[in-house]
Simulated assay, not measured.
Amino acid sequence: MDVLSDVIAVMRTGRPRSARVAWHAPWAQRFAPVPGSAGFQVILQGPCWLVRPDTGPVPLAVGDVVFRPHGRGHTLADNPATPPTAPCDPDDPRSLARHTTDTVSTPASADVPTTVTLCGAYQLGPARPHPLLHDLPELVHLPAHLGRHPELRATVDLLATELEAPRLGRDAIVPALLDTLLVHILRTWLDEQPARGATTGWAAALHDPATHTALQAMHRDPARPWTVATLAAEAGLSRASFSRRFTALVGQPPLTYLTWWRMTTAAHLLRESDAPLHAIAARAGYTSEFAFARAFKRHHGTAPGKYRRSE
């Protein structure tokens, strides 16, 4: 798998949740913080405002996509001055039940402005999150611009259609579309960073050919006995130049990241599969279960077997 696909596969867990929601003015809905999750809002109809406690309100228009990667609380409103209602918990589908949208096309009064949104959340793995997630800002706002981000817009349209008029196969297609939406949100954000002058961090690392090649090699075959020299050869640089560049962009030396990734992958396999311990150890580059267990406990604070039972 490529680096971004690997990162999403490891950091995502459970099933994503979503709803198509109609809001009739005046309205202001507070969304509670949900640690260990990332939320999104897509504006399908009518303008609204995103209100956060730490900064000024953000106007949103039809087609805008908002991604909140760190589970922080926020408010959506028809007007920043509208008092918000009690917090809505995205983990509780009943908290949105009063808003769900069988009556979107026929609101109570034609004179009442209606806003329609797609809202949802992704559950993130309990293990330490990937550093790519740390690089994301509190708010990723992708405004709708004609002709820009066609794949993102197509995914939003498909998801909106499925949620508006449920049909056979919905339970299979909606989670797949939500995962596709997450990929396109992250792709779009990563693609925009070089134009904004990003010179360090994961966006810069994935756009740097040498560092990207080394990361791809690690993710393609994490069990291989990589050294700085063999990774530098993959990247086409001298050992010293590669080590400096990788560390400056990614924020940690190559072998430190490799060990972190091996232990993160192992934790994911312990959570999500019933693979035997020796197979997981081999996937993480260890020929000895004992050596793997020592390394895993050093990184996660608990033995692999106990970690699996607790999860």
Rank of each mutant, 00 (worst) to 15 (best):
2 D>R: 07
6 D>F: 02
7 V>C: 05
11 M>A: 12
12 R>K: 00
20 R>I: 00
25 A>Q: 00
27 W>I: 05
28 A>E: 04
28 A>Q: 00
32 A>W: 00
33 P>T: 07
44 L>S: 04
47 P>D: 13
52 R>K: 06
53 P>C: 05
54 D>S: 08
55 T>K: 04
55 T>Q: 09
58 V>W: 10
58 V>L: 15
59 P>C: 05
60 L>P: 11
62 V>F: 00
63 G>D: 11
66 V>Y: 09
67 F>G: 09
70 H>Y: 12
71 G>F: 05
71 G>S: 13
74 H>Y: 15
74 H>M: 13
75 T>I: 14
81 A>Q: 14
82 T>R: 10
83 P>R: 05
83 P>C: 03
83 P>I: 04
85 T>D: 15
89 D>E: 04
91 D>M: 01
94 R>K: 06
94 R>P: 02
96 L>Y: 11
96 L>R: 07
99 H>L: 13
99 H>E: 15
103 T>S: 06
103 T>Y: 13
105 S>G: 14
109 S>K: 07
109 S>P: 09
110 A>W: 05
111 D>V: 06
111 D>M: 14
112 V>L: 14
112 V>N: 07
113 P>T: 09
115 T>F: 12
119 C>K: 05
121 A>S: 10
127 A>R: 09
127 A>H: 13
130 H>F: 14
133 L>R: 12
135 D>N: 07
136 L>I: 08
140 V>P: 13
140 V>C: 04
142 L>G: 01
142 L>W: 07
143 P>H: 10
154 A>Y: 01
157 D>N: 01
163 L>D: 02
163 L>A: 03
169 G>Q: 10
171 D>K: 14
174 V>F: 03
175 P>Y: 08
175 P>R: 02
179 D>N: 10
180 T>H: 08
180 T>K: 00
180 T>G: 00
180 T>S: 09
181 L>A: 00
183 V>C: 07
183 V>D: 06
184 H>K: 07
188 T>E: 08
193 Q>P: 06
196 R>S: 06
200 T>C: 05
201 G>I: 12
202 W>D: 11
206 L>R: 15
207 H>F: 07
212 H>F: 02
212 H>L: 15
216 Q>D: 15
216 Q>V: 14
217 A>H: 04
220 R>Q: 15
222 P>L: 04
224 R>V: 04
225 P>V: 08
226 W>T: 04
226 W>S: 03
228 V>C: 03
229 A>Y: 11
230 T>Q: 10
233 A>G: 03
234 E>L: 01
235 A>Y: 11
236 G>E: 08
240 A>F: 03
241 S>K: 10
246 F>I: 09
251 G>W: 09
253 P>T: 01
255 L>Q: 15
257 Y>R: 04
261 W>C: 06
261 W>V: 04
264 T>L: 12
264 T>A: 14
267 A>C: 10
274 D>E: 11
275 A>Y: 03
275 A>K: 10
276 P>G: 08
281 A>N: 09
282 A>L: 14
286 Y>E: 10
286 Y>H: 15
286 Y>P: 12
287 T>L: 14
290 F>Q: 06
294 R>Y: 08
302 T>K: 03
303 A>M: 05
307 Y>I: 00
310 S>G: 11
311 E>G: 06
